[in-house]
Design a protein around this nucleic acid. Structure first.
Lengths: 193, 193
DNA sequence: GCAGACGCATACAGATCTGTCTCTTTGACG
DNA sequence: CGTCAAAGAGACAGATCTGTATGCGTCTGC
């Protein structure tokens, strides 16, 4: 096999898929080993522990989902700053309609690890903050009066929509988008008053 | 001990506390047995399996939280139908500020059990629907044009706020309340237009 | 070619988990 | 008091989990 050099990548890819789809605790090391076609000792050579692997997967999720996918979708779907905020909801609508919609691993992990001192819990919190900061930057560019507050509100809408989509509501993003319009109008128009 | 007759209640109480606080998978039967001071065989005499106990806890949560607590708070905090919708957010604000805020076991369970055919997953979905139906009834009484849509939107706000509170945002309910005002105004005032 | 690192395979340790079995004790009721 | 069902206590089975140890093949750099 020529993939001698990217054993670490194979492990990480498999763990990424499994953790994102099924959560952390319900996926065992043995399953990751089996599905990645790798020796268990190779996994523990590259990652000190399961927790270490989880943290690596959360970072990879930031790279692939938050940075590469979400930002690209926002840029693709909208041009003006105000449209960009709404485009997040359009992107989520597409996401929810994917056949293999896997829900949000950050929220899943946050709820699964309830100890706020746990590094895994903290990593999930941090990843949600990364997303909120991106929303806040867009809100600022769109002229929101209180970008931080608006970002909190919009992210709340997004997270609620994810839970709704996870229980099978495919219209969740569109419904949330309608609310987001009200929020954005209110946050930007109060300047004119 | 005089609590010979309510062994089942002691088990259920302990499981309720532990499952609601820490989730399902991270709480083992042994811990429930130890903390309820009951013999393991007594637990399995009253509940066929752990899954059975989980379903009983979800039902108990509906009774205690959804029916007894939430409805009572709504009635206590508001009198008019429109105020009642907003009172949900006020109740959540108090809930989030409890020292022992335990997050939402329905959402936690929904995300923890990703198989939509699993009875536990389905029970969590059903419990969230029960809550949405209650919101819908209040929305109808408040004169919303599309009570179902409004209920979906308000519940999305509530669920997003819960995630936010779980990551430590104590202002989540107040922020969501401000958005809810926009939603309710929009849903009820479009009749006048 | 050869040393050493890397990967595969697999057995294993030790913990934990669900669920069962057995034995003893206790309490309710006739 | 005697009976019987329920509860307590704890060992146990079997599965699964994380993590380690070992032995063997293979590729790479020198």
């Amino acid at each position: 096999m020529g993939d001698r050099r990217d054993v670490r990548a194979r492990i990480l890819d498999t763990a990424y898929e499994l953790f994102c789809r099924h959560g952390i605790r319900s996926v065992g090391i043995d399953r990751i080993v089996a599905e990645s076609g790798v020796a268990k000792m190779s996994l523990y050579r590259h990652f000190a522990s399961k927790a270490d692997l989880v943290l690596a997967v959360l970072d990879l999720r930031e790279e692939r989902w938050t940075r590469d996918w979400l930002e690209a979708e926002i840029a693709r779907l909208a041009t003006t700053p105000a449209d960009r905020l709404l485009a997040i909801f359009d992107a989520f609508d597409e996401w929810f309609h994917h056949d293999d919609f896997e829900s949000c691993v950050f929220m899943r992990t946050l709820l699964e690890f309830d100890d706020s001192a746990d590094p895994i819990h903290r990593a999930a919190v941090r990843q949600l903050e990364v997303i909120r900061k991106k929303i806040e930057a867009h809100a600022e560019q769109a002229g929101a009066q209180e970008p931080e507050n608006t970002a909190y509100q919009l992210q709340g809408l997004l997270m609620g929509a994810i839970v709704s989509a996870t229980r099978g509501d495919l219209a969740a993003a569109r419904r949330a988008r309608a609310v987001a319009e009200l929020v954005i109008d209110n946050a930007t128009s109060s300047a004119a008053a």
